[in-house]
Design a protein around this nucleic acid. Structure first.
Lengths: 162, 162
DNA sequence: TTGAAGTATCTCGATTTCAAGATAATATCA
DNA sequence: TGATATTATCTTGAAATCGAGATACTTCAA
């Protein structure tokens, strides 16, 4: 099988540190590299619409929650692997861009509701359509049966870790 | 099969946007999430030694290149998915920490050689040993045959993209 | 009722990264 | 040779993120 970038790294380690079993480094190295590449490809689609993966994630969470497209920062936080400070910043940017607004939550005044504005709703509808089309393109590198096997392993691995 | 975080997201989209085939979103979403989790687990090991994944990557590239453990910033850049400005900053930090030094390259005065200092060599030897042990722990969530299948798909996917 | 504990969000400062372009040395070739 | 293109690295300013802690409100229990 053709040697790739990660194989060369493993070969160097096997020469320099033959005491180490670097087998797992191949899998984890490829996984990290692949995720970075795919993440950048995904980002390109959002950039064309004036979004980033980060801002899309917030808009998408609001959109898929269903009408009236409102969630608290805490709700949003629960679905993403970021800190509360980062979420505050993301919401600030989206608010500045006129895509969402902060509403006071009458039921709990510690809390806030982030609501999709019509401009945000319109944008995220177009963004998710383009994003899904792009995802089809990016997964087309694998055969259908490979995708099924891949997804099954990813799911198992994630469940074991989470 | 047990429903995971990504399944819930797909379920929401299928309700809200039944026009979209969100199948690929499951695979790509799990891949991104898994890479983030594993990356954080990897980071913890380095943190105990006063390193980050970023600084380890540079030290490790120097170490595995073999004696005399010297590479140019350009050489280092070729193995990592970062910009030249980021590399300059990483080398600055490592130099400040006394782990590497910049040597003038007599053969090309545009260039510079980054050399592992004894302190850097000692640290990276310990770091890579701990890192590989940690990688064994992190890949033990999968069965040997799953790891083989997983790695084969990752390799194919990466080759198709790179 | 009131004080303590808990919860939700935001603030702050530090760090890392990137994109774009500056700087300096080397290579090319008319 | 001299002008131009190329290469290698660094600089700069902007943006995203994090960890730690501040602030404000709510819940609980004595």
């Amino acid at each position: 099988m053709k040697e790739d970038h990660v194989d060369r790294i493993l070969g160097q380690w096997r020469t320099e540190r033959p005491d180490l079993d670097v087998e797992p480094m191949g899998l984890l190295g490829r996984l990290a590299r692949l995720a970075t590449y795919l993440g950048r490809e995904v980002e390109k689609t959002f950039l064309e619409l004036g979004l980033t993966s980060a801002s899309f994630d917030v808009l998408a969470a609001l959109r898929r929650s269903g009408a009236p497209y409102q969630l608290s920062p805490g709700d949003l936080l629960a679905t993403m692997m970021i800190t509360s400070g980062t979420m505050t910043n993301r919401i600030d940017q989206l608010e500045k861009a006129g895509l969402v607004e902060r509403l006071t939550n009458p039921e709990d005044r510690r809390s806030v509701l982030i609501a999709l504005k019509p401009e945000g709703l319109d944008l995220v509808e177009r963004a998710v359509t383009a994003h899904v089309a792009n995802q089809h393109r990016l997964t087309a590198f694998l055969e259908p049966d490979e995708r099924v096997a891949f997804d099954a392993i990813l799911r198992k691995y994630l469940l074991a870790l989470e």
